[in-house]
Amino acid sequence: MFVHFLRENKGASGILFLIRLFLGYQWITAGWTKITSGFDANGFLQGAVASASGEHPAVQGWWATFLEGVAIPNVDFFNVLIPWGEFLVGLGLILGTFTTLAAFMGVVMNFAFLFSGTTSTNPMMVILGMLLIIAGYNAAKIGIDRWLIPIVKKSIHMRQMKPALHH
Rank of each mutant, 00 (worst) to 15 (best):
V70H: 02
T29Q: 09
Y25D: 06
Q60N: 12
S37R: 11
S13G: 15
A30S: 14
S51E: 13
E55Q: 12
A12R: 00
S13M: 10
W27T: 03
G38N: 11
T65M: 10
I15G: 11
V75K: 06
A41V: 12
W63M: 05
G69Q: 08
N74G: 05
Q46L: 14
I35E: 07
G54I: 08
F22T: 06
Q46W: 00
A48P: 03
I35C: 05
A58D: 09
P57W: 02
G47N: 10
S51N: 12
I28N: 04
G14W: 11
W32M: 10
W62M: 13
I72R: 12
A58S: 12
F44T: 13
S51D: 12
I19E: 13
G14K: 09
K34W: 04
A50N: 13
A50F: 07
K34I: 09
G11C: 02
T36E: 12
I15D: 11
F44K: 09
Q26C: 11
I35G: 02
N42F: 11
F39A: 07
A12Q: 06
Y25A: 11
G54D: 11
G38E: 12
V59K: 01
W27G: 01
P57V: 02
Y25T: 13
T65N: 10
E68C: 06
T65P: 00
E68Q: 15
L16W: 04
V70E: 06
F66E: 04
G43I: 02
V49T: 09
G11P: 00
A52Q: 07
R20L: 13
A71P: 04
S13K: 04
E55W: 01
D40N: 15
A71R: 01
Q26Y: 02
W32P: 00
S53N: 13
F17D: 07
G47M: 07
S37I: 06
W63D: 00
L23N: 01
V49Q: 04
P73F: 05
Q26N: 09
W63E: 02
E55R: 05
K34G: 04
T33Y: 04
I15S: 13
W32Q: 09
A48H: 00
A41N: 09
F44E: 10
K34C: 07
A30D: 09
L16P: 05
V49A: 13
E68A: 15
L21W: 02
A48K: 00
V59I: 08
G61D: 13
T36W: 02
R20V: 11
A48D: 08
V49G: 00
T36S: 15
I19L: 15
S51V: 03
G43T: 09
W27D: 02
I72K: 12
